[in-house]
Design a protein around this nucleic acid. Sequence first.
DNA 1: TAACTGTACTATTACAGATAGTACAGTTTA
DNA 2: TAAACTGTACTATCTGTAATAGTACAGTTA
Lengths: 126, 126
Amino acid sequence: MFTIDMQSRTPVFEQIVIQTEEFIRAGILNPGDKLPSVRELTGMIGVNPNTISKAYGELERRGITVSVTGKGCFIAKNITDVMKTAAEKKIPEFEKLAKELFESGISKDELIKKINSLNSNNIQLS
Amino acid sequence: MFTIDMQSRTPVFEQIVIQTEEFIRAGILNPGDKLPSVRELTGMIGVNPNTISKAYGELERRGITVSVTGKGCFIAKNITDVMKTAAEKKIPEFEKLAKELFESGISKDELIKKINSLNSNNIQLS
DNA sequence: TAACTGTACTATTACAGATAGTACAGTTTA
DNA sequence: TAAACTGTACTATCTGTAATAGTACAGTTA
C-alpha cells in the first residue's frame, strides 16, 4: 500500500500523509475505511511507531482521518468536503506555478492543453 | 530588492535563489545585470556571507548567473533559454498539481479560467 | 483476561541550515 | 604599486527537525 523512499528529503511521516491523500483522490480509500494500525504499518514500512503516530496525528489535524484509541484510524465521513476545501486553498499555488511557466516562455495554450488531457482516476463505489 | 523572511521554513539561501528567478521573469533583472556583491547583500539582509555565497553558487550551478572572482555575479547572457528549459522541466509538477485539484472537485473550466486570466509582467527593454 | 488500538513522554542520534572567523585568488581603482 | 574591492574555500560551532529507542498509559475488542 504505502511506498516509502528513505532516500527522499521528504520526511517519512509526510510521505505517509501525502500518499494517504493520493489514495483518497484515487478512490482507493473511502469514507469510513480503516487505515493499517500503527504497529502494522511499523512492520510493513520498517520505521518507528512514533513516526507513524506522527503521520496519523497530522492526518487527523487536517480533518482527513479520525483516530480513536483502541479502535483505529479511519477516513473521515465528510472526506469529500475536506478534500475540496483543502484543494481550494491550493489554487493560489496553482496560479503561481502557472504564472511562472507562462512568464518563462510556455504558452497558455500548452498549459490549457495539459489540463484538458487530465483524466479522473476516481472510482465511485456508491 | 530582496525580502527575506527569517521565520519561513524555506532556507534563506533558497529564498534568494527563488527571488532572483522571480526578478528575472518580471523583467527587473536582465542579461548581464550585476547582482549586489556578497558583502553588500550581507549588510542589506543581515545574514552571514557564507549564506549569500551558497545562494550565488546555486544560481551559477543552475546556469542563471555567472560569477567571476574579483568582478561579481552577473545574470547569464542566455538567461531566456535557461529559464525556458527550466520551466519545461516543471511541467510534470504543473500537471500533478492540476490533477490533484481536479480530482479534489475543482473543475477543468475553473482551472482554465485561472490560466486565461494570467498577465505577463515581463518588461521588454530591447 | 488477553490482545489489540492510538497516544504521550524522555533521551538519543543524525543531518541540514546558518553562523563565525579566517584565508586566498583575482579585479578594479586611485 | 597599493588599497579596496570581488567571489570562493575551509573548519568549527550552534540550532532545529526528523527519526529512533524504549517505556508507559488509556481505551476497545474478542
